[in-house]
Design a protein around this nucleic acid. Sequence first.
DNA 1: CTTGACCCTCCAGTGACTAGAACCCCCATA
DNA 2: TATGGGGGTTCTAGTCACTGGAGGGTCAAG
Lengths: 134, 134
Amino acid sequence: MNIGDVAKQAGLPAKTIRYYEDIGLIKPLRDTNGYRAFRPSDVHKLVFLARSRALGFTIEDCRALLALWEDQDRASADVRAIAKEHLSQIETKIADLESMRSTLSDLVRDCAGDSRPDCPILQKLENFPAGQTQ
Amino acid sequence: MNIGDVAKQAGLPAKTIRYYEDIGLIKPLRDTNGYRAFRPSDVHKLVFLARSRALGFTIEDCRALLALWEDQDRASADVRAIAKEHLSQIETKIADLESMRSTLSDLVRDCAGDSRPDCPILQKLENFPAGQTQ
DNA sequence: CTTGACCCTCCAGTGACTAGAACCCCCATA
DNA sequence: TATGGGGGTTCTAGTCACTGGAGGGTCAAG
């Protein structure tokens, strides 16, 4: 199977698939003309990768998950540990973003948004306490 | 004022401040020894930048906000537009992360986390519909 | 005079791609 | 047979917002 078809099946851009080969996540064979020749197992892995990435796992998480996925003797707990760690990172991010949202929506609410030069948003950006997350 | 003191005042690493100079956000003077010499207005700008960045504005947003901040004749509406756009991006991100969280926490909940090799997380990563945000 | 804290520049790396250039390969049509 | 289009290939460099490190200069105190 060529890269274009695989890209459709996995829902990933061809560029991304080449990149995944570069960094060693997949190792497709090659045809005599140099084209990548994807086996069903490669496609399967790419689908797995697409889904894991969509859930926000990092590439290194994905690498670990793939290794566990391929290991018949892995412990369920190993996978769970990765997922739990990731989940807690997601929860931290959500909390950060919610605090940003609340500050920002206060600012926007207080701003008349007219043509006068005095803007409460800029005033608050000068004055509210800094040092939040990113 | 030297960069170390400014860093403390603004709550930014010195490296970041140098970077902000590199990309033209600030233009501190120089002492004869080559050290950056920050005026109060530079410090003020850096505080503003730290706060805007803490609220998740991109550097380019910050550049625009700084320009408006310095422009006596700006319209309040311009600032509000940037803030509103940013707010809606934050809200999209939160929604994305919440959908990740709900899927992931389902997965984690269903996983015994023991030493058996069958793991529902990996099974679901093979099977649930892909194509979410990132 | 030395030590240690501070400052400087420049280069490279991060994560996860993405854009683009310059090229090769294959098939169908005129 | 040319040619056009749609694949494929490699390579380099760019993205964003820093961050780390090497290798050095400056300054104040002891």
